[in-house]
């Protein structure tokens, strides 16, 4: 007997690989990650055996690529009408949301995992701090989950994938940069410091930088964890509320 969450998860995961989606995504992800690392990140010129040049681009890479994966999660089901099939199976909206999210997260995890040759490269060239690299991978994976959960939630709102993509990139962008001066300066003139700190604390960049220094701080884990859970709960509410409309 299969758990309904597992049934949804397996169906979703298989559908990535029977369509070109998986191959195109993985190829582009790896290509862009290497281009950014070696050209923009000056991987060799830094003269240090670490993967900083690689991980620093992840928030920006995910902003577009993970939003592209997330945009179809619900919009497509709504557009093709398969949502009606899914929602009349004995599966709750929450189970479907979790199954779909986990499938997409595992899929991005596979893409991320396939960057392992870079790790091997630095290990061969020098003597990197493996703890830092593991922390960075964990942080990157959690951050991908954060982007995905937001994207999935946005995707549930519309049957149009283009709208889902654009809105999701915008929302994710705000989450990414909320700790940077361009956002904080805008607020600092007229908001109290406490609120300013609150806004800054939502920044993916800040939390990811903490993790990618190899410091696995409980606060960063809780941040990404609660963001994912919160977005998925909202996602479930949206699916239930918009059922049939």
């Amino acid at each position: 007997m299969t758990n309904p969450v597992v049934a949804v998860l397996r169906r979703e995961l298989v559908s990535y690989f029977v369509t070109p989606v998986a191959y195109v995504f993985i190829a582009i992800f790896l290509l862009m990650a290497s281009l950014l690392t070696f050209h923009m990140g000056n991987f060799f010129d830094r003269g240090q055996a670490d993967l900083y040049a690689f991980f620093q681009w992840h928030p920006w890479l995910y902003l577009f690529l993970v939003s592209a994966i997330a945009m179809r999660l619900w919009s497509e089901e709504r557009k093709t009408g398969t949502l009606e099939i899914l929602m009349t199976l004995p599966i709750s909206a929450g189970q479907a949301v979790v199954g779909k999210f986990l499938a997409a997260w595992i899929f991005t995890g596979i893409a991320l995992g396939l960057t392992f040759p870079l790790w091997i490269t630095v290990a061969y060239l020098g003597d990197p701090d493996h703890g830092v690299i593991i922390g960075s991978y964990v942080g990157s994976f959690l951050m991908a989950g954060g982007y995905l959960a937001i994207g999935s939630c946005v995707s549930a709102l519309t049957r149009n994938q283009v709208i889902a993509f654009v809105v999701s990139v915008s929302v994710c962008f705000l989450f990414t940069v909320s700790g940077l001066p361009i956002v904080l300066n805008f607020f600092s003139a007229w908001t109290p410091q406490a609120l300013l700190d609150a806004i800054a604390s939502f920044s993916f960049l800040t939390h990811f930088n903490d993790l990618s220094r190899g410091v696995i701080d409980l606060r960063d884990l809780v941040f990404f964890g609660s963001l994912i859970v919160g977005a998925l709960l909202l996602n479930t509410v949206i699916i239930d509320a918009k059922r049939g409309s």
Binding site: S15, T19, G81, T82
Partner: peptide
């Protein structure tokens, strides 16, 4: 058992 209008299906499967 329910057959929705237009019998929507997951096309890639």
């Amino acid at each position: 058992g329910y057959l929705p209008e237009g019998a929507p299906l997951y096309g890639e499967m």
